[in-house]
Design a protein around this nucleic acid. Structure first.
Lengths: 355, 355
DNA sequence: AAAAGTTCCGAAACCGGTTTCGGCAAGGGT
DNA sequence: ACCCTTGCCGAAACCGGTTTCGGAACTTTT
């Protein structure tokens, strides 16, 4: 690898300035016992010689490599797969702004993820981790907590001790969706929950129930289908709901990919989305815009999420307590064509379906 | 960050064995001057105490952090966006097998990418880089070459000096597509080139031309449309081709996303894909399977590409010459419904379109 | 049995930064 | 005029590994 183009080290820099490397180091790190004059001299010389400290040489004393760890579980049902690039861009841009980088790994299972988290941390490839797709009971969190490794959740979880997080208020969106549909005259409102075990699914179901309570509708567990996170599951879930004696005239979906299946289910009964059956969903996947009618859904700013998570994690690594590092964002409603005023009563709808 | 759970250092390990750390280090790194007996003793003790060397502490002497760098340009037209997760998984899995990791960054422009490459390398956040989406003339390559930083291309380029690469033989696929269509009776075969400036686009156009030559058809530059890398561009490109006095009865697309637009263009003229107009494309995006008829296309194993690239780069960093690190894979043809025997002559097709 | 190799490990330098500690010189107070 | 700060920088330890060098103990050769 040819030794051409030797790096300039801190010693080179110090020598060229007639200072010692300790002074140079403190000047560059803004120690208070360095005069403003020499601080500037050092800074200028550093840029002139294009000096860049080796991050691993710094790390040996500071213990920090200025790197965010992220372990993706690729086998997951990935509603966020289309958002991956945005998510990563959000993290890396926010990180780069503070001179941090992203160390990425992929796992095939939760236990694999735990193993990688521990390994990356022990080798100090990362100073802390962003945990995407949190479960209500999450082994990754348990492991990091036990090992006192800094982390930030993308999502929330049951046991929030020592947890920092960024999350979108999916429950608020579901709540609002129920209200919206109620105001359009719907009185039988179904719900398609998201992935079992994921905490977001639990929260969104709560939001749905709270929404019902707020508008004065009774909760009917028949109106909650099986969990659905993709097109076929969504198809089955909605078929199941529409086969009820008193079918829902509106359905709230936890994830867009299930809603795509819902379109097929509704159409296969000779009904039209947004007319006989209204649909409101959550995620904001691009496919929603090419369906007809376009899917009414709550969209998530994944780039922003990545950026916020990176900033929170860096603060966490720097020692801020997790209680101060909890942030909730809002999903933005895309008011499109898949929902509308109630057209038929539930009974009439049942009759129509029976034909 | 509580000092609970102190790491075991190499000194701890040495002390517990009654050896010096130099012996331990050499034992773990398979130096020949360590007896087999002590080598085993050390290994066992290391796993027993779960000793994991700090990668940055090693790096200070070795100069390597065992990390692959990847700078994504997020603003690119990303045919490979849907494959991003697969690509990253391929890289990280192959890297992890050799105890390497992936350092990821994102850029908004080529100059931004160059800046990041240099920065990451100078701070030694990465030992070398994978360069995705290569251009025929690529500033990133120039920069890395000039700085003697190891890199591997995903794709090829004009000036291949000092270049190692992995690439899929897109030109062979285009060649074969022309042959296939010729054998089905097509004599007017159009071509939709990919992104201007990208080297893959140049290669695939060559493949198309060579294919024509091989079957004995003349090259007609009218049959080559404008560049197209997404749906609207594909729509325009194919509309342009079908508006010719002697329109093609078959079209080869450089990228699937353009082919999706081709479907619309063909249908809007009252024609059916795979009947009046045949279509063969390249990439293997998932959307191709939900079109009707399903898109005939050459699919790329992106996961494998990531894995091969990681392995090549690691060898490159270890000092193998780039000439020995060039590898070409093959795209797999998905023989589906968007192409078939010629139905109308070009003249008849023109007449039909005119109506 | 002495000389010459081998085998194997310890001692110490080294990598490139950061951080602690101490001291000199200038400034301020009495 | 003297002492005490304060400001500012140099000297040296330190971080946790890797690598070079030298030498003791043990074999082999002559």
């Amino acid at each position: 690898m040819s030794a051409i183009g030797k790096r300039t080290t801190i010693d080179d820099l110090a020598r060229s300035l007639g200072l010692t490397k300790s002074t140079v180091s403190r000047a560059l790190n803004d120690y208070p016992d360095i005069s403003e004059k020499t601080r500037l001299r050092v800074r200028n010389a550093a840029t002139a010689l294009s000096y860049r400290p080796l991050s691993h040489a710094q790390a040996i004393k500071t213990g920090r490599v200025r790197s965010i760890g992220l372990v993706l579980q690729v086998s997951e049902h990935d509603g966020h797969r289309p958002f991956l690039a945005d998510f990563l861009a959000g993290i890396t841009e926010a990180s780069a702004a503070q001179d941090w980088t992203l160390t990425l790994a992929t796992a095939n299972s939760t236990s694999d993820a735990v193993r990688l988290l521990e390994k990356l941390s022990q080798e100090r490839k990362a100073d802390g981790f962003i945990l995407p797709r949190t479960y209500s009971e999450d082994l990754r969190i348990d492991a990091l907590r036990a090992a006192h490794i800094p982390f930030v959740l993308y999502g929330r979880t049951d046991n929030i001790a020592d947890c920092a997080w960024y999350d979108i208020a999916g429950e608020a969106a579901m709540f609002e969706a129920v209200e919206t549909l109620y105001n359009l005259g719907h009185r039988r409102i179904g719900f398609v929950p998201g992935g079992a075990g994921y905490h977001y699914a639990k929260l969104r179901l709560h939001g749905y129930r709270d929404g019902l309570a707020a508008v004065g509708l009774d909760f009917d567990d028949q109106l909650v289908s099986a969990n659905a996170v993709d097109k076929p599951q969504g198809f089955n879930a909605v078929s199941q709901l529409l086969a009820l004696k008193q079918p829902p005239t509106a359905i709230v979906c936890s994830v867009d990919h299930a809603a795509v299946g819902a379109y097929d289910a509704i159409r296969s009964l000779g009904l039209k989305v947004g007319h006989e059956v209204s649909l409101i969903s959550y995620d904001g996947i691009p496919e929603g815009a090419v369906l007809s009618p376009e899917l009414s859904t709550y969209s998530v700013d994944t780039n922003l999420a990545g950026a916020r998570l990176a900033e929170l994690l860096i603060r966490r690594v720097r020692g801020e307590p997790p209680q101060d590092l909890r942030e909730i964002g809002k999903a933005r409603f895309l008011d499109r064509g898949s929902h509308g005023p109630v057209l038929l009563s539930s009974a009439d709808l049942a009759a129509q379906i029976a034909r």
